[in-house]
Design a protein around this nucleic acid. Structure first.
Lengths: 233, 233
DNA sequence: CAGTGGTCTAGACCACGGT
DNA sequence: CCGTGGTCTAGACCACTGG
């Protein structure tokens, strides 16, 4: 074994990960402390810390002060999905993007929306429906509600040429987003927009967005039949 | 607002993120160097480094040596979903988990599987179907193919009491996973297993798993109607 | 209360990649 | 070449939490 140029945090990470995967440290094992590992690997504790922090991020170990670092019992893996605007997704496939505003009205929020976002029930919201096309084929149907109390300016915006998403991105910062993905049957209206049959299985992404505690918008994206979300890890 | 005891990397991260979000540093802006930011915030360069590294992880900025740190042009957000075994998900809801092996056979791999995983077509695979129940209600239908060339031992395992997932997790390490999520209509068999009607909209998670270049398994999980995947970010 | 991870610092050297 | 991020170090103090 020749001189390692330096002991990198990646080497430490890979060593520890290796010991977890090959069974040296089975699930539930309490790992040596950072100080001990630093000694074993001949590096600074900060290096071990970074390595273990990445393993914790990756879902391999669980860290708690005082009790130490423990190999996760049930290895919950995490997958990262990229959430791109329809335009981006479509143009990446070298297809032509087209957007259409279908409906726009200002109304009191439905009850479920009030409770979902934590809205004030007596303030109106902007309700939008729009379509996104790829090469004139239906790609995504969007239904959106926007909190006019938080974003009054959007009531004056012309949303027939710019998507609500783009308008919001360039005008409103946000801090928190919640995403829920589900499979729903297409109702009659949705089936027409997506050029499919009523009852067809459709993937729906629902996103709720806040700026700190202030609800900004909730959007439901119904994807065309056959759409897939993909991720690697 | 009282004195911040120290300048934390989180404070730096939030400051920078804030400036990106409120438009001080619009998309494409070249940020000051780490050294400059450290000076501005009155902290060590390592602190700024950690803050910027996290922002890069989060998809806010792009970092390159020599050229510097730049605000990402198209803000592609990423969402992290946790991929937990059915047992874990069910027990977390305080429901009783039950597993049943439905079918087990050893057969040549179907063509689509050969090309999807990169299998040798002339070697058999283990083909399994099983069910996961929460409080005896159908939770998830699992169909799985396992590469017996890579994992011969599983042919001898008794999979009626331990799930194939659990067996694999404790016997085979893996390095790469690919996930695809889609919405499918339930065929007759699936509808029966999930106690729903034929054609019902069902969310399907397909996972392919490799150990380096060696394909291990491909599994399709059909979730019960109404199932949702959730994430925050 | 004491042990363990969490973070910060100041300084150093390395490695990549424009110029 | 040389500027910028990437990483390491040794030491220090802090903050959470289990016993």
């Amino acid at each position: 074994m020749q001189n390692r140029k330096r002991t990198s945090f990646q080497a430490v990470r890979d060593m520890v990960q290796g010991r977890i995967e090959n069974g040296t440290w089975p699930q539930g094992t309490l790992l040596p402390t950072e100080t001990e590992l630093a000694e074993e690997f001949g590096c600074a504790r900060a290096t071990v810390n970074r390595a273990l922090r990445e393993l914790a991020d990756g879902g391999y170990v669980e860290r708690r002060r005082k009790s130490g670092t423990r190999v996760i019992i049930t290895p919950i893996k995490q997958a990262r999905f990229t959430i791109a605007p329809a335009r981006h997704e479509i143009e990446e496939q070298n297809a032509r993007y087209r957007y259409a505003l279908v409906q726009r009205d200002i109304c009191p929020p439905p009850d479920w929306l009030v409770s979902r976002l934590g809205l004030a029930p007596d303030h109106n919201v902007l309700h939008l429906r729009c379509m996104h096309y790829a090469d004139n084929r239906p790609f995504q149907f969007e239904e959106r509600w926007i909190n006019l109390t938080a974003v009054p300016a959007i009531a004056l915006a012309d949303l027939s040429n710019i998507t609500p998403n783009e308008w919001l991105l360039s005008n409103v910062p946000f801090t928190t987003a919640e995403i829920a993905i589900s499979a729903i049957p297409a109702d009659e209206r949705l089936a027409q927009f997506l050029a499919t049959s009523q009852g067809a299985s459709v993937m729906q992404t629902e996103r709720s967005i806040w700026l700190r505690d202030v609800p900004i918008t909730l959007v439901r994206l119904a994807h065309h039949p056959g759409y897939e979300m993909r991720a690697r890890h």
